[in-house]
Nucleic acid binder design. Structure first.
Lengths: 248, 248
DNA sequence: GAGTGGTCTAGACCACTAA
DNA sequence: TAGTGGTCTAGACCACTCC
């Protein structure tokens, strides 16, 4: 099984991977068409299609119907989370600038009062009641990079106003503190999963390309959750970093 | 593009996914053979093969040549990292027991003195010199769960003895402290990548199944790196959790 | 031996894009 | 209209497993 020579379509995928890495097909460029590659490698078009499907799943190329396969630019973005958290919001903008990209984070939905999903309700440990939901779509130099959806229990927030003007979470935490909910503890859970349909459309990826999901929950002084934020990004384009001190 | 009905092989994959989730094919069980499924769904065997390949990449089934597709048990394991780090080693064993699995962490290689790879040398900020390398293969109730490879600069360790008896890193850090290298700061970098060939064999996954790589670097009181550990696990089976306090 | 999955082909059809 | 990628088939061959 180890000795078995790799299948031909995998060999093709590997060569294309190398060609891309070594700049033969730079970002933005089109790969040759599948029929052309088929002639070149002496294989059927179907087999070339399998090879290209691999590159697609790995997030190396983006394939459009009737056009062809375009090489993606994959600047690996570093997202650094220092604990305890000293920064003043803007972790995304900073990561973008460090990667040489211009950040842009428009509001995509909300703030609005909604009934939470089962998962959100579980994270916030609430039996009933509503939450304030806000969704941001985040771009780096025009390319979709990240989706962030945050939820605050209406009971803690008081009213919609709390999420009105600010775009970063820090401002919101200050307002929560004024209402008697001082944020004292954070938790982030990281998982790899298949994307939802909405996410495939936004990121322009196949539904077999994985995404990273980071769920951050903020707790107040009574250890009650007051905010849960879902961050989603294409798995291949990001690296997450956590830093902390050994002895508190 | 959105309205287009899904391809038939994707529909098959989705139905099989549901059947697995709902217990029609419990863990350890075999799926029906591809020819049988082909008859059942009125498709060609090749198309069924595509559907099953999807499940394989998602880590839902394991396919063996000449045998068939077996449903994998996918207990999602939670790995919790509290910062500052209070635990006494054994983070893996604890995570296993919480998931109802019996931990087993034999040494697979080392401790041995080797010349570090370029990546390891970069992490440890060393120009020249050698490192002590140790590789552990970690199992949960017999199933391969994780690979951990740690490197300590020989200059900091003094001799091989430092890594001799202990199996957890905490003991090693105590010895490093005795030699004047007190560990004060940690950094963990998380990435999703394609597995190496060794990893596909160990975990029994396809090379298109992603793995999570967590690189932990420990720094001493002079901010010199004294240990870098690479942890690798199948991406779908794990969830990483980080916790910290807001105001130090 | 019969059954399994994995690969490959040749040809076909469709939906899409481009000129 | 010609070219693109995506899907599907029918049939083939191989390496493997189980009996």
């Amino acid at each position: 099984m180890l000795e078995r020579p790799k299948s031909r379509y995998e060999q093709v995928a590997e060569r294309l991977r190398n060609d891309i890495k070594q700049g033969k097909y730079p970002p933005g460029e089109r790969l040759p068409s599948q029929t052309q590659l088929a002639r070149e490698y002496g294989l059927a078009q179907t087999s070339i299609g399998r090879a290209i499907a691999r590159l697609k799943n790995e997030g190396l190329v983006r394939v459009e119907d009737g056009k062809g396969a375009t090489v993606l630019e994959v600047p690996t973005v570093k997202r650094v989370r220092r604990t305890p958290y000293r920064g003043k919001g803007g972790s995304f903008a900073q990561a973008m600038r460090e990667a040489g990209l211009e950040p842009h984070t428009p509001l995509a939905a909300g703030p609005e009062v909604v009934t939470p999903s089962a998962e959100v309700a579980t994270c916030l440990q609430m039996g009933e009641g509503q939450v304030i939901r806000r969704e941001r779509h985040m771009f780096g130099s025009g390319h979709p990079m990240q989706i962030a959806v945050s939820h605050i229990p209406l009971s803690a927030a008081g009213s919609l106003d709390i999420a009105d003007t600010d775009t970063n979470p820090t401002g919101m935490y200050e307002r929560l503190a004024q209402r008697g909910h001082k944020v004292t503890r954070f938790q982030e859970r990281i998982e790899v999963r298949r994307p939802t349909e909405k996410e495939t459309v936004f990121f322009g990826i196949t539904d077999s390309t994985n995404v990273l999901e980071v769920v951050r929950i903020a707790y107040d002084q009574d250890d009650k959750p007051v905010d849960v934020t879902f961050n989603v990004f294409p798995a291949t384009q990001w690296a997450l970093t956590y830093e902390w001190n050994a002895h508190e």
